[in-house]
Amino acid sequence: METENNNMTPLLEIKDLHVSVNGEPILKGLSLTVSKGEVHAIMGPNGSGKSTLANVLAGREEYEVDSGSILYNGQDLLELDVNERALEGIFLAFQYPVEIPGVSNSNFLKSIINARRVHQGLPELNALEMLKYIQGKMESIEMDKNLLKRSLNDGFSGGEKKRNEILQMSLLEPSLSILDETDSGLDIDALRIVADGVNQLKSEDRAFIVVTHYQRLLNHIIPDYVHVLSDGKIVASGDKHLAEKLEAEGYDWIRETNSMTA
């Protein structure tokens, strides 16, 4: 689906989404609208459904959409296969990046870049152009070039895996990037690099959904909105100050306010 650059249409529009896994309801009426140029942070207790949301957007099959709708660029996202969504510009930085032994990182990167280019009607990059393109991006996120020769994520440290996710994101230049806890388990230096990667990609026509447990990421990637996901629903939304309050006070106060209003 070729996209009309219509600024009135939000990039992503989720309405009353209900999702279950193995018959167990996980998302229970979630609505969220993301427009181009925006950064949305999603926080929330463990098991509240953050990764579920990310996986549903990417099209993972074991997540069953029971009701509700997801529009992406005004079109029904649920119609598309996983790789079609990717080719249309949805990128998921995995909470646990997957290891594939024997598949060299460089080979993988080449394949995914060219798959996207072919989809966009662009010519494939030749080996030299490819190398230049990849190495340029690697430099900007201070990634060790030796990681290109190694197998995809295999034997990478946690930090290297997360950086590799950011590298792929920078290379594919997606319209909607979903970062699922990309900051978890990173030292402050690595955290800055990840944040830089996101900030470099930020533009008028891209949007980000950043799932995190730790407020300190949001000192580096300034969110336009912060949402709290609890028990499958967004229970509070605000700006970056909401994240600070959550860091200091935890989630209990939200649950209490909620049960009072419920």
């Binding site: 990417a58 296969d81 990128f91 997957v98 594939i100 024997g102 598949v103 995914i112 798959a115 197998s151």
Partner: peptide
Amino acid sequence: EDQLFYCQQRGLSEEDAINMIVNGYCK
């Protein structure tokens, strides 16, 4: 599923993904 899903999320078709994974393993 994890490996397949990962490759597909990056835009590869399912067959390409399987080929890539198995051949990589035997390389």
